[in-house]
Design a binder for these strands. Structure first.
Lengths: 123, 123
DNA sequence: CGGAATCCCTCCCGATACTG
DNA sequence: CAGTATCGGGAGGGATTCCG
């Protein structure tokens, strides 16, 4: 309440940094941010590209990103309506890290799968 | 099915890289890995350090990390029992990225909070 | 086309109690 | 001390329908 955290304690759930991490830990946020890496995208494009996401979750995730200042929402007053989403500079700074995460996931996938197989095999 | 992914499609939920990302996106995994950064820790130490985690979730998370080859579990045949958890090399390679995430969360917290305030304020 | 709103259900997770 | 087992509440998230 006093926000006098001398050292931000990620392990304290009241700490803001933990809340930020929680957002990153969100299942869809990472995917949406990565999907926006190449540049602005329309709502429908995102929906089509991200496998398994529902309309509801996509909207909800986009709102969350917008709220946290990671993405912007631009409504074009045309008909039919057109809405573009784009990463902010803040969002792009996060993108760098997330891209690293994606690279890690891709690069170490074989090791992870091997470890899983080993673990599952041992009775 | 043919695992001939020229480019691993993170957006396809069947893709292994996405599953790896899902694990990273897990609420507790990141915190546990970071807690293990400094070196081996006992079960009880982890439980005490990570605020808000339940016994069940801690065990479950540790099992998951162990399964994916990110951490090892060492049981000492003493009495009372003592169990140490330690990051593997694979786990440590991930740690680097997660530390970056923590730094980002800490460093950009003010901007995120400001963005939130702005968003919530606009009617 | 890009949502908002509703319903509904799964399963995540926490609390508790018990075991080796 | 380091777990497993069990139960129950509640939020997360999917499918559907309707609106601007």
């Amino acid at each position: 309440m006093e926000s006098k955290d001398v050292e931000p304690d990620l392990y304290d759930r009241r700490c803001g940094s933990r809340q930020v991490l929680d957002r990153i830990g969100d299942r869809w946020s990472v995917l949406v941010v990565l999907a926006l890496a190449a540049g602005p995208k329309r709502y429908g494009e995102l929906a089509g590209r991200i496998d398994g996401i529902s309309q509801k979750m996509l909207t909800q995730t986009l709102r969350g990103l917008e709220r946290d200042g990671l993405a912007t929402r631009m409504v074009h007053a045309t008909v039919p309506p057109r809405v573009d989403y784009e990463l902010t500079e803040l969002g792009r700074s996060l993108l760098t890290l997330l891209a690293g995460l994606r690279a890690w996931a891709t690069g170490h996938l074989p090791e992870v799968e091997a470890a899983r197989a080993r673990y599952d095999a041992r009775t």
